[in-house]
Design a protein around this nucleic acid. Sequence first.
DNA 1: ACATTAACGATGA
DNA 2: TCATCGTTAATGT
Length: 228
Amino acid sequence: MTPDPLDSFLSQSSWMSSLTCEEAKRVRSSVTVRSFAAGSAVFARGMPPAHWAGVMEGMLKLDNITEEGRISTFAGVPSGAWFGEGSVLKDEPRPYAVTALTDSVVALLPRSEFLRLLHESHPFALWLIGQLNARLAHYVAQVQTDRLGDTTAQVAYSLSGLFNDALFPNTARRITLSQEELGRLSGVSRQVANRALQELQDRGAIRLGYGSIEVIDLKVLQSIAREG
DNA sequence: ACATTAACGATGA
DNA sequence: TCATCGTTAATGT
């Protein structure tokens, strides 16, 4: 008997451990799992937020496309992370598109079940506050880096954000992410992302592969992100 | 100065 | 064969 991938994913999700047995069972029976090919849309911009979602495998991004076709990426979502609570809480159309960057598997918890947990489970509500607070801290630091740091620091921060323990507890050391996508995530061109990544590699923070980045020394990466 | 877009060839999967 | 990478040139602020 191989363990169900959904069961093992849920047991690795930190908020699950704060639930009662019945709550956990209800979650388990209401979650659905869907696979997405690289490049396909997980949620379209403007759709009502029917689910809270967790990334079981792969990597997603949250982005917007302007009328002229320019892309700005707000966030990368590595496997292990749950996301989309903002839209679910507000019950407003999703303000950005969610796209699979690699072949991905996503767990979907219906909005009604998410709200029920929020209302019934104090531990879950506390966990959610911590999550929102960690995300806020991340973006505050991102703004500081973008204003005070050079482009290498910006790229280093965006990359290290994917390894933020509070937000993304289980990110593998090596992630499949092209330099083009990391550039979008960092707000710089691919060429500048390329130069920054080579500097990060020269300084021993990362190792570059074909279509992938391996973090060798997260401490060094984070300290470069604080330079400017 | 330094970033951006466009373009090119080289190379990995 | 196609995506990705490393690099250079022209251009903009």
